[in-house]
Amino acid sequence: AVRAGLRAGTVAVDDVVEEGLRLEPPIVTWRRVAAIDTTLGELPVAAGTSVVAWLARAGRDPSVVGAPGEFRPGQPGSRRHLAFGAGPHRCVGAQLARMEAAVVVAEATALLDGVTVVRPPWCPDNLTFRMPDAFVVRRT
């Protein structure tokens, strides 16, 4: 349905890119040290404590996105993700990465007709980056 929407112009390429970033961000975690005594959720965190924030699931907050586990380009809240970080730690290449991804989505759409997935990508355990090994497909 997404590919058909891309071809028909009813699904925006940018929405597909953002939804992909929301569900599968390239940066998996942030490591930080608490500067002051604080609370995360209901957990007290003392100043100086090392914290690992699991960003890989930050885009799946049901209070932000209506269908957090589903790939629905353009759904409200789907652009409120942390795929490239935030604030002073935001990735300086975020816009370039988005532009590159948009080109791939736009150009690959027509090429994917008749393609089936033989083996989805596998990502080795890594606490910082998502690094898929390969994406094996077959044209029928």
Rank of each mutant, 00 (worst) to 15 (best):
D61I: 07
W122P: 03
V118N: 00
E70Y: 01
T39K: 11
T10F: 13
A110M: 08
P44R: 07
V2W: 12
L40Q: 01
V137N: 07
R98M: 09
V13A: 10
G9D: 02
A35V: 14
V136L: 15
R32I: 04
L111I: 02
G69K: 07
R90H: 15
V104M: 11
R138P: 10
F135E: 03
A97Y: 09
T116K: 05
R80D: 15
L6K: 06
P25A: 01
R138C: 03
H81D: 13
W30N: 13
D61R: 08
A1M: 10
V92P: 12
V103C: 01
G77S: 05
G87I: 03
I36G: 05
T109Q: 01
G77I: 06
R98Q: 11
A46S: 13
W30T: 14
P26D: 00
D113N: 03
L40S: 03
F135H: 14
G74C: 13
R130N: 00
F84S: 11
L21F: 11
D113T: 05
P68Y: 08
A46T: 13
A4Y: 04
R130T: 03
P120R: 12
C123S: 13
E100D: 05
V17G: 07
R90C: 08
G69Y: 13
A1D: 11
R79Q: 15
V52Q: 09
L127E: 00
D133W: 05
V28W: 02
E42V: 07
M99H: 08
A97K: 09
W30C: 09
D37G: 09
V105D: 01
V92Y: 00
D113Y: 02
G69R: 12
T116P: 01
G93H: 10
V105Q: 03
L21C: 06
R98I: 14
I27C: 02
E70R: 15
A110K: 10
Q75R: 15
G9P: 14
G20D: 05
A106D: 14
L23Q: 04
T39P: 10
I27H: 08
A46L: 13
L21N: 06
G66K: 04
M99F: 10
T116I: 11
A58Q: 08
E18F: 07
T116R: 12
G85F: 12
T109Y: 00
V51R: 02
P73E: 00
G66R: 11
P68S: 13
P68N: 09
A86M: 14
R57T: 12
L40A: 05
A46M: 06
M99R: 10
T109E: 01
R7D: 12
A97H: 08
R22T: 04
L40R: 01
D15I: 13
R130V: 01
L96I: 11
L6E: 06
A102R: 13
L127C: 02
V13M: 06
P121W: 01
A47T: 06
T38C: 10
A94S: 12
D37P: 07
A94P: 06
A53Q: 02
V137F: 02
V28C: 00
E107N: 09
V17S: 04
V115G: 00
A110H: 14
A86I: 10
D125T: 12
E107K: 14
P68I: 10
R60F: 04
A134S: 14
V65P: 15
A56P: 09
D113L: 01
A102G: 15
L82Q: 03
